[in-house]
Each structure stands twice: as structure tokens, then as C-alpha cells.
């Protein structure tokens, strides 16, 4: 009945307070459904509002799997990227929370797997590795030669690894920015960077030994 009345412009003024009360009393679940429907329709403001609220929800889930704040934030970002990619799979009219929670849980477990794989590796890529790699060429005759060796080693990397080094180490983009630019996931970028650093280290160590 109220909906019918709300469509009559003559009494729109009467309807407005009811609308306002309805909005303030709207449950979080209903609000997310409304925002997701709007987001699927291309409403960028609704989508941003939904993602901001979803990030809080995802952070709670991520903390169940990860203690480190950085890892939690990686899971949050990776989940948001995944939600963006699969936003067409949300079925209007259904609760949004299980949909978000399933994606968040999957991404949190993925991050755990990546961490376990890394722990098994002997070497850990760190932010200072590129500089270490350059320093490892101390036997070269000059700084210029060392730079040339690094450039040659970079050029020899596969395109994906080279792009990860360029974005994250040379242009110093954040993981999120690099992920958004390249269309790749945060864990995938981390993995590419890790492999690139190992390759660079091996290549430059080889050239020094020679």
C-alpha cells in the first residue's frame, strides 16, 4: 500500500518521512542487497558504499585465518578484487553475506596456501631485494656496468615477471594499484615478484661468478 502511495507525486511530501524512516530502519542485509542490485546496474556510488562495508565484513573473516595485519589486508584486497570479477554471480533477491563470505573464505585459504608454500622456500623475497641484487654485483668494474647487468637480467625475465618488477619495484606502485592496473590478483603478483627476484639473484650471481 505504501509503495503504491509513494508513486503518487501529489503526496510525495507525505511519503518522504516514511521513506526516510524505512531507510534508517533498513537492515544491513537488505541494504547490501539494495546496494548490490544498484552496483550490478552500474551505480558507482552504491558500489563504492557496498565495497567499503564489505571490506569491514571481510576483514573480520580474514582475521580468523591470519594474525598479521598485512596479510589480513592482502586478503581483504584480494577478496574485493574477486568480488569485482564475479559480481555478476550475485543473484538479486538473495542474501549478500553468504556470497561475500564464501569469496572471502576462499581468498583467505588461498593466502594461507601461498604463505605455506613460501615458508617452504628457502629464500624469502623482501622489499630490499632489488637493492641487494644490485649490491651483489659489487665485483663489476663500475656502477654503470652493474646497472647494465641488472637491466640485462631484467630483460631476460619472462614478460609477467618483468612487469611485476617494473610496477612494484621501479614504479613503486602498491600491490592493489598494480593488481588493478594489470588485472592480476595480489597473490599472483606477489608470486611473480618472488620468482623474478630469485631469477635475478641467480642470473647476477652467475655473472659475478663468471
Amino acid at each position: 500500500m505504501f509503495v503504491m502511495i509513494g508513486h503518487w507525486p501529489v503526496i510525495e511530501g507525505l511519503w518522504a518521512p516514511v521513506q526516510q524512516r524505512d531507510e534508517t530502519s533498513e537492515t544491513a542485509s537488505a541494504r547490501w542487497q539494495r546496494l548490490m542490485r544498484a552496483a550490478q546496474g552500474g551505480d558507482q556510488r552504491a558500489y563504492a558504499a557496498f565495497l567499503k562495508e564489505a571490506a569491514v565484513f571481510v576483514r573480520v573473516i580474514a582475521r580468523r585465518y591470519h594474525r598479521d595485519g598485512g596479510a589480513v589486508e592482502d586478503v581483504v584486497q584480494e577478496t574485493l578484487l574477486s568480488l569485482h570479477r564475479v559480481r555478476h554471480t550475485y543473484e538479486p533477491g538473495r542474501a549478500v553475506e553468504p556470497w561475500v563470505a564464501a569469496v572471502a573464505k576462499a581468498r583467505a585459504i588461498d593466502a594461507l596456501r601461498v604463505r605455506m608454500r613460501r615458508a617452504a622456500d628457502e629464500t624469502e623475497a623482501s622489499d630490499g631485494q632489488l637493492h641487494e641484487v644490485a649490491d651483489s654485483t659489487a665485483g663489476a668494474d663500475s656502477r654503470h656496468e652493474a646497472q647494465a647487468e641488472v637491466a640485462a637480467a631484467l630483460a631476460a625475465l619472462p614478460a609477467g615477471q618483468r612487469a611485476a618488477v617494473r610496477m612494484l619495484k621501479i614504479e613503486e606502485l602498491s600491490l592493489a594499484e598494480a593488481a588493478a592496473r594489470s588485472g592480476q590478483s595480489v597473490p599472483a603478483l606477489k608470486s611473480l615478484l618472488h620468482r623474478a627476484m630469485l631469477s635475478l639473484r641467480a642470473a647476477l650471481k652467475g655473472s659475478n661468478d663468471a
Binding site: 574485493l80 569485482h84 593488481a179 588493478a180
Partner: peptide
């Protein structure tokens, strides 16, 4: 801050999609 930037980036990229 990264997450907020990511949200802005994703929102700007939000074209209409047809639900399955």
C-alpha cells in the same frame, strides 16, 4: 589506505553487469 584506493579504483571501473 591501499584498500580505500582499491575500492575507488574498482568503483570507477563498475560497468553494468547482467546477473546470471
Amino acid at each position: 589506505r591501499d584498500t580505500d584506493e582499491l575500492i575507488e579504483t574498482l568503483a570507477q571501473d563498475a560497468k553494468p553487469v547482467t546477473p546470471l
